[in-house]
């Protein structure tokens, strides 16, 4: 291995300690309880003006919105919680759920909150399996170079990569490089080849880059 002054583990350690520091250090600035006006504004921004679609009472300039803003401040001063005020306005006998800018995370509107994470998990899982199947590579369908690893050589591969790392680092201090397969020459035709615009030019518009072309770079 290469001498590394700081490795990723130590960076992770640093991250964890900073986060702990943030969590437990009594902070010197900010950290005051929100004022009544700030709480009122946060309520304003969560209530849609019933008389002017798509604007919150914070934004709307009609008199009714102004009255609602005054009501919010009055009730907060009386000791109502923010949620109580939201519940008051969104009660079915008053304006109903349509005055809430944020649909409640319960009851019939729970679906709006649940669908995105569910869809995202599903898409993520699909992507995972697609990636895996792409990696296995139905090489029959491929007219490019065959997929990398020969079977059962994971360990050898790691060693090989390390050797290439060391070799290149020793010669040039390279950061990134690519290895097509253990049997071929190491290739350094990464996008990092700042010095060879000609190579990029010649490759543009021509797909896929053939192994021969790649070798020239290596």
């Amino acid at each position: 291995m290469h001498p590394q002054p700081i490795g990723l583990p130590s960076l992770l350690l640093a991250l964890v300690s900073i986060v702990l520091l943030i969590a437990f250090l009594p902070s010197c600035a900010e950290e005051r309880p929100p004022t009544l006006e700030e709480r009122a504004q946060s309520v304003d921004q969560r209530l849609i003006c019933p008389y002017c679609p798509a604007e919150t009472i914070d934004q709307a300039q009609v008199p009714q919105a102004r009255e609602m803003r005054a009501f919010v401040r009055e009730k907060l001063a009386e000791g109502w919680t923010e949620q109580q005020i939201l519940d008051y306005f969104s009660a079915p006998e008053r304006y109903g759920l349509r005055v809430l800018a944020e649909p409640p995370k319960s009851g019939s509107t729970l679906t709006i909150w649940l669908l995105p994470p569910a869809a995202f998990l599903l898409a993520g899982a699909t992507l995972f399996f697609v990636l895996r199947s792409m990696k296995r590579g139905d090489s029959s369908a491929s007219d490019g170079p065959p997929a990398g690893q020969p079977p059962g050589s994971a360990n050898e591969m790691t060693k090989y990569l390390e050797r290439v790392d060391a070799e290149i680092a020793a010669r040039t201090g390279s950061i990134l490089h690519q290895v097509q397969s253990p049997n071929t020459q190491p290739q350094c035709h990464s996008e990092h080849s700042e010095e060879s615009p000609s190579v990029h030019r010649s490759r543009e518009g021509e797909n896929p880059p053939s192994p021969a072309k790649g070798k020239k770079n290596g």
Binding site: L8, L11, L161, A169, I175, L176, H177, Q180
Partner: peptide
């Protein structure tokens, strides 16, 4: 990340300074 395949060690070293900068900012 390079095209096709990143070598683990090399990638870690590329990420080192950006990660330090990020943590310094956080701190």
């Amino acid at each position: 990340l390079p095209w096709r395949r990143a070598a683990g060690g090399a990638f870690k070293r590329t990420l080192l300074y950006p990660a330090i900068a990020a943590l310094a900012t956080l701190a």
